[in-house]
Amino acid sequence: MYTLFSLNLKWIVRDRILQALLTASLVLIMLVPVLSSFSMRQSQELAVTLSLSFISFVLLVFTLVLGSTMLWRDIERRYTYSVLSLPFDRGTYILAKFLAVAFFIFAGALFIGLCAALAIKVSAVRDPSTLPLQWGRIAVSIFMDSLKYALLAALGILVSTFSTSFFMPFFSAVFIFLSGSASQDVYEFVTSSSGMKLNTAARVAARVVYYIVPNFGAFNFKLQAIYPIPLDPLQIVYAIAYFIIYTTMALSLAIWCFSRRELT
């Protein structure tokens, strides 16, 4: 497992597209103190908001590039013939790919997060806020975002195991991200009194989508990081448990599908 994991990580780290993305993300983060100065009274809050949003966006791009293309590239370039003829089983191969992508997401989040901390501190010192900076909550928010994207990567890998083209896993991941981000709000709407006015088919469809696609809303801790809203430990435990269960299911299904795939 470690051999394949380190191979995949080496591939990711040497990928020039990802290197360019990482550089671009640092430029974005460095812009935070400048952009936050446009807010007259809430410079610090805006700096935190912008930093978390930039980090989230960069992690999304990493996830889409890696989660939905790594397996496809292996198959497309016929690397699978060389690797899977070595004494690895396909389950190990899929798990190693996921772990390398997840590791990169967490390491990337840590690295960009540290740069963001510097940018936030600059903004906070320049225009002090009445609210204290909640570094712990910012860290929790970034960590939860990383979990969300690791889960999305697992789903991207799942789609890659049965897809023959680049487009299907990529656009499936985009669709899952969009629907998963909105599913909680849509579910709450259809179960509210206003939602009852919708026809039954639409409400059932919304419920089905809610239960199938992951609820990315469960990983959103941005408000707690920006404003003095206390963290609910149960909510954190729930989100971590949700990540573990959903990711395990996605990867188990991915291994099952890939073990049956013909590498012609």
């Binding site: 003829s85 070595l86 004494p87 089983d89």
Partner: peptide, 18 residues
């Protein structure tokens, strides 16, 4: 099984290596 390949050296046709 993966163990079956432990004693095998395999060269694929037109090998594609990382």
């Amino acid at each position: 099984t993966a163990q079956a390949r432990l004693s095998v050296g395999y060269l694929p046709e037109n090998p594609a290596l990382y």
